[in-house]
Computed example of a mutant assay.
Amino acid sequence: MHLIMILNALAVAWWLRSSWNQPQASWSLRWGRSLFLFLFPPLLIFMTAIAVLFMGPQGAMGGITGSVSYVVALIYMAFFAILCIKLAFQGWQSVESARKCPLVNLGDKRARLLQTGALFAGQIGFWQPELVVSQGLVQTLSPEHLESVLAHEQGHHYYRDTFWFFWLGWVRSCTAWLPNTEPLWEELLALRELRADGYAALQVDPLVLAESLLLVVSTSPVLSEICCAALGSSGAGDRLEQRIEALLAPPEPIAEAQLQSWHGFLLAFLPLVAVIFHS
């Protein structure tokens, strides 16, 4: 019975991920659907594994022992934990590397100055990230363009993108074998940047921000993307074109996440109900 639970969870997760296609809708609809299809399948698998572990290897449901499914669930949970520790360590290394950079004042903001000629600006850290800019960015951009870049990075700070996308990146690593993991991840990255662009466009000229974006994404990333939210993220190909078009178009309101939008995720906790009826 326990093995059937695991197989059912895997089948539902695979089916949901396979149903995704590139949406052409408003920001809020794209964000809600992409986040659900990205997060719900692994959450369902995770909850199923927890339920199987709680029921133990000596399951009595249907008269079938659950030792095999228990071992499978235990291995999968260990895999989740190891990946989390690995990503956390890599993120810590990124934070420590950023903290070695000297502090500078950029107007009313303080930032870490990265000694490189590449054009880079990003938030580095977890819940309370630090602004990191490169020497090349400060020397190359005009004060107006630099202000637009800092406004974009303030958007990442406001939405706590480094924190939330660390956990989403962990989910990405754990479920790389599911269909559409990479397209959904790229979609969420693009929507994250559109949200930060929208935040900045309320404070600076969108055209100036678009010009800054074209300059910054022309250079390769200089830091790991783990625990990092940078202006140039997801800037290749049609993603860059999409961001430029959004900046030049009339601003689209970006609604805050509503409680009811999370109701669908409660279905992922259904496997835990089986623990109550287990003997």
Rank of each mutant, 00 (worst) to 15 (best):
V275R: 03
G264N: 07
A196T: 00
N105L: 15
I124F: 05
P102C: 04
F126A: 11
A11M: 12
M47P: 07
E256I: 11
A151K: 01
L231P: 02
T162M: 07
S28D: 14
L39N: 04
L35H: 09
A151R: 00
Q123I: 05
Q90K: 14
A200D: 02
L184D: 01
T219Q: 10
G169Q: 00
I226A: 02
F36V: 05
L43I: 12
A257L: 15
W92K: 14
C228Y: 00
V133E: 00
S19D: 06
M1S: 14
I124A: 07
L141A: 03
P23D: 09
L259H: 04
Y159E: 07
S148G: 05
H2P: 07
E182T: 13
H156F: 10
A111P: 02
R17F: 07
T48C: 06
L213Q: 04
E182F: 09
Q22I: 13
S233R: 09
Y158T: 10
F89H: 12
D161P: 01
L83G: 07
A255N: 08
A236I: 12
A230I: 04
Q115P: 15
L53D: 00
S218D: 11
V275W: 06
T140A: 08
L215A: 13
L137K: 10
V133T: 05
I244C: 04
A200R: 05
L37S: 02
L141T: 01
S94P: 06
K100R: 15
Q22Y: 09
Q123F: 05
C227T: 09
P143I: 03
D108I: 14
F120C: 08
S279Y: 08
A118G: 10
